[in-house]
Design a protein around this nucleic acid. Structure first.
Lengths: 188, 188
DNA sequence: GTCTATAAGATGATAGAC
DNA sequence: GTCTATCATCTTATAGAC
């Protein structure tokens, strides 16, 4: 539909993931896509509107990616590896943080609608992970202590933390090593 | 010695942990301690100077806390639990994020001296954790796969990610459950 | 839809009085 | 050491021309 709108969201997403939502301006977005700052207000009246749309789209795209994994992956281990690969791909595309990991850090400075979206993303991920873990345990492919919801929270926190760690170390391989260790733990 | 300087650092630390380094101003600090904004420039000429001092002090205090743990804790499990408790205490003091976890998210917007300090904090923590894990494996108290440095990175990423998760869920208990699960894994 | 012009406020920072 | 006054700049946002 609206090409400019998509360009704005793409640029804003990149900036938010690399710098944080509080560390970029309408002007930064405008310069990236070759228009003038105030033109963006036509598409997103306030920065808050932009933030809400950003999180909404990110959540939808991530949910689609998870659905795609469910269709394609043959084993539970494969599902989990592909899930981790989504985060790794984000990291390798310009050293970006997970958008909702970044916004989690900035949470207290964000409007309530944005906060709710961020919470939604985290619970979406935990629900999907818990489902995969539950499946794996039922088929005997996975083995872990505690309930799957609790373990899902551990895996997600580990992946988000691993993205921070990889950025600090300036080493994408660090993410991979942490993610791999986290997942290997489940096939003991 | 300099009481005002310490007050400034205390206020700045709180603000940086709650909102992020890019989301507070000299004025915010000044209002908290009852002086005027520009007065802060006498103690910290630039915000960058403040950031460097902030990370430096945080690193030192954390290192001291780790040394204290080494003196007091009787078992390796106890050492690890107390280490995790440092993060939990931060979280429970006004829902603060680990300063260097927050700065890890904002990393690309920070000056090189600050970035180096953040990297230093993460490697300090990993080194301390790796030492504890190595000790635990030698005495047979712990059991885990892979080398201790790699496992230390997993634990630290898990704890930092757990802080983000707990803030998003608005539930400090979430940090505790994730941390506990991470550490229980080591005593299989 | 995008532009220019502009407002209103915040920000990091400096100068100079006390 | 802290103050007031002030600066240049940036930021979100609006109004109105094209």
């Amino acid at each position: 539909m609206d090409e400019t709108r998509a360009q704005i969201l793409d640029a804003a997403e990149q900036l938010a993931q690399q710098r944080g939502f509080n560390a970029f301006s309408y002007r930064d977005i405008a310069e990236q896509i070759g228009i003038r700052g105030p033109s963006i207000h036509y598409h997103f009246p306030s920065k808050d509107d932009l933030g809400v749309a950003l999180v909404e789209r990110y959540r939808e795209q991530f949910a689609q990616a998870c659905t795609h994994i469910d269709r394609k992956a043959r084993t539970v281990s494969d599902r989990l590896r592909r899930f981790a690969a989504l985060f790794r791909a984000t990291l390798e595309r310009g050293n970006r943080m997970c958008l909702c990991g970044m916004l989690a850090a900035e949470l207290s400075t964000l409007s309530e609608p944005i906060q709710l979206g961020v919470q939604g993303f985290w619970s979406d991920c935990e629900r999907w992970l818990a489902g995969a873990l539950e499946d794996g345990r039922e088929t005997g492919e996975l083995s872990f202590r505690g309930d799957s919801a609790r373990r899902a929270a551990v895996v997600l926190a580990g992946l988000e933390g691993a993205m921070l760690a990889a950025r600090v170390a300036d080493d994408p391989g660090k993410f991979e090593r942490i993610a791999r260790t986290l997942l290997d733990e489940l096939t003991a």
